[in-house]
């Protein structure tokens, strides 16, 4: 049989669950809103680039582009508070409260993450084996906190610029200057990071190319876990938890919309980063 295109469906072993429906939905919302925000934001930030005016015209002008930008911002605030709510809810309803801030299932950086960074650089230079990652690698934690910080910073500065006369009732106007710088630069950091580093780490590097659908379908084969999250896999084997994680192979419909969203987002992202790089070097 021909090997499946997505890395999460390749190899041997049964399907195991990695992400639940809420995480999958939030990530899909992140993709759609982020692409919408970048698409409608870059023509302003790079207004001087030759592609900016045609793109803005295609978007229907600053009025409709601004509307799309604000709708996507509302989606962003929506998933941000949904996530905060979920973390708070878990905090009150789980017996193992410590696992939220410490241990393999926590997003909080641990000493192991620092050891893994050093281990990876040693491995890059052939000075040691590749570190084994647990449920979340330091790169995935960085992605998580980058979005967390990014939404707070870009969202906060964006709100200031969305309702300037309201905020001017109690804040000085020069904050709008600060907000403009912060909003644009943090957005440039976000899009530059997602469309190059995140794309490479998660989808495009040899071994994973061309796409990893685990965040969309929520599941991957056992061999995928052995490669990408060996510590988590070994622990689950040791503690006999594989049964509980077993999942059906993704249905044809799930596979199709996951491929569409995955490749669609990759294509739009690469298109946008090419535009931005062109504007930056010209």
């Amino acid at each position: 049989m021909k090997s499946p295109m997505a890395v999460s469906d390749r190899g041997q072993g049964p399907y195991l669950r990695r992400f639940g429906p809420v995480e999958r939905t939030i990530h899909a919302l992140v993709i759609v809103s982020f692409l919408g925000l970048v698409l409608t934001g870059v023509p302003l930030r790079f207004a001087y680039a030759p592609w900016a005016a045609p793109l803005m015209k295609a978007l229907g002008g600053p009025g409709s582009a601004g509307f799309v930008h604000r709708v996507c911002a509302a989606i962003t605030f929506g998933y941000f508070f949904l996530h905060l709510l979920r973390v708070t809810w878990t905090l009150f309803h789980t017996d193992d409260k410590k696992s939220i801030v410490w241990g393999p299932n926590s997003m909080v950086p641990q000493p192991k993450d620092l050891r893994d960074v050093i281990g990876m650089f040693r491995w890059f230079f052939g000075r040691g084996p590749q570190p084994k990652f647990d449920r979340f690698s330091y790169m995935e934690k960085f992605d998580y906190w980058a979005v967390f910080w990014g939404v707070a910073i870009i969202g906060g500065s964006g709100l200031l610029l969305w309702f300037p006369t309201f905020f001017a009732r109690f804040l000085p106007g020069w904050l709008f200057n600060v907000a403009t710088i912060v909003h644009g630069d943090e957005a440039l950091l976000a899009l530059g990071f997602i469309f190059t580093i995140h794309f490479f780490n998660v989808h495009l590097r040899p071994g994973k190319f061309p796409v990893d659908l685990v965040i969309f379908t929520g599941r991957a084969r056992a061999e995928y876990f052995e490669e990408e999250h060996p510590l988590e896999y070994e622990r689950n084997v040791r503690e006999g938890r594989l049964e509980g994680l077993a999942a059906e192979a993704p249905s044809r419909a799930t596979y199709l919309w996951s491929m569409t969203l995955g490749f669609g987002a990759l294509a739009v992202g690469v298109f946008l980063i090419v535009l931005v790089l062109y504007a930056l070097v010209s």
Binding site: F121, F124, L189, G192, F193, T196, I197, F200, N201
Partner: peptide
């Protein structure tokens, strides 16, 4: 911006090189 892109730029290029 410079720090993040410098660190992860080097990280990504070295990773690609090792692979």
């Amino acid at each position: 911006l410079v720090s993040v892109f410098a660190f992860f730029g080097v990280h990504t290029l070295l990773w690609l090189g090792r692979l």
